[in-house]
Design a binder for these strands. Structure first.
Lengths: 221, 221
DNA sequence: GTCTATACAAAGATAGAC
DNA sequence: GTCTATCTTTGTATAGAC
């Protein structure tokens, strides 16, 4: 009962993502990936050129997951949503794509620096697009006077996206669900860790309606 | 002109830390480390049991750098410093230890997950001590009513330390010195990324006096 | 203390049968 | 499409000369 080729390709990528995320790139062997996918090492080369191509595909899928989730949440907002709501939606989308949508994003975060330059190059375009998505959003916030002015936008983006990536290391869905985590992280990045007597402390925004994938609008670019 | 043994040990560790930080653990070979240290691969085994021991030592040194820097700044504070000043000092200390004090901390951040369980075990105690340092500080802040109450202290610590670690990926000392970066990051983590019309916006705290190492007090534990 | 030489294991990748 | 078998390279680690 051999799988059709495209399905097996997906199997291999899924297995690779899980192993990359847990063990790192160099520590994961093609033999392990093959075993997890239910085939032998040699068979991988029917589906991929080699380890590099697998890495590039995993990286692409990782960014795709967060990009989708962020855009989905942004576009589900009412047209008159203010910048704070937009930023919160984007943060929540990033967390969602990262924590729920799979092991691809975790793998991305962990292996990006260590794959071959060739694999990184192959993946570069899709990664830059995600960077630009955040830069645009933050730029709008800055123009609206919502952002602190002592930190340049690219640095806010680097700090923010970096900070958002850490929960993959310690998030445990068994205590406190995703919505709670999301509200906590959003509060931390938007308002900081100090208590703020003045703050309205508006409770967690209502969970945004989750649209079917086919329903969301096309990418802006 | 062979070096005395302890000096060569240091050379090897420094070379290993640099390479680990840049390439990751599994991608760095003993041959590379040896070459960077000016010896041959076989000679490493006169100084270390193997790659594992090198890893454990690099990890230890990385935590030691930030621990020292954080405690130094905390103890340099005036006795009546408020919690905000204490938190800011600790943040600045972490950044200083991480960015200025060397490649050991960068290496720590990058390889911790990927070294052998044996090496991690060897290093565990010193790492837990640093975790406890932050937990104690944040606990004090929480007791003083300074911390937001919707996020438990251990989670604040995980998020905070994680977020503080990212600048190793992108900090460039050539544009904006360390003091500026430190003030920016401190602002981001304490007050968040949004502008805050009400906020006093007290300009960067005056740089804390930098004490000689011998002058600082002993560890609390 | 460091060298050369090498043992030994494991990795990525290929060839050709089925 | 997947298998088995194997090539080639490279890594950690050891042995013994100097």
């Amino acid at each position: 009962m051999t799988l059709p080729a495209p399905a097996m390709r997906g199997q291999i990528l899924a297995a690779a993502a899980r192993l990359f995320g847990r063990q790192g790139y160099a520590n994961t062997t093609l033999r392990q990936i093959a075993q997890a996918a239910g085939i032998r090492a040699g068979s991988i080369y029917y589906h991929f050129e080699g380890k590099d191509e697998i890495a590039a595909c995993v990286l692409d899928a990782g960014i795709a997951a967060v990009t989708d989730a962020v855009q989905q949440r942004l576009q589900a907002l009412p047209a008159d949503a203010d910048m704070r709501a937009r930023l919160a939606a984007a943060v929540e989308g990033h967390l969602w794509g990262m924590l729920q949508c799979g092991e691809f994003t975790a793998a991305h975060i962990r292996i990006y620096r260590y794959v071959s330059e060739a694999a990184r190059q192959r993946h570069r375009a899709i990664r830059s697009a995600y960077t630009r998505l955040w830069d645009d959003l933050l730029r709008q916030a800055a123009d609206a006077g919502m952002l602190r002015t002592d930190v340049p936008v690219p640095m806010v983006r680097q700090f923010l996206v970096g900070a958002l990536n850490w929960p993959v290391d310690w998030y445990d869905p068994r205590r406190g669900g995703f919505d709670q985590l999301s509200a906590q992280i959003t509060g931390l990045v938007l308002d900081g860790m100090l208590s703020r007597p003045v703050r309205p402390m508006r409770a967690a925004r209502p969970a945004p309606p989750r649209r079917a994938r086919a329903e969301r609008l096309e990418l802006a670019r």
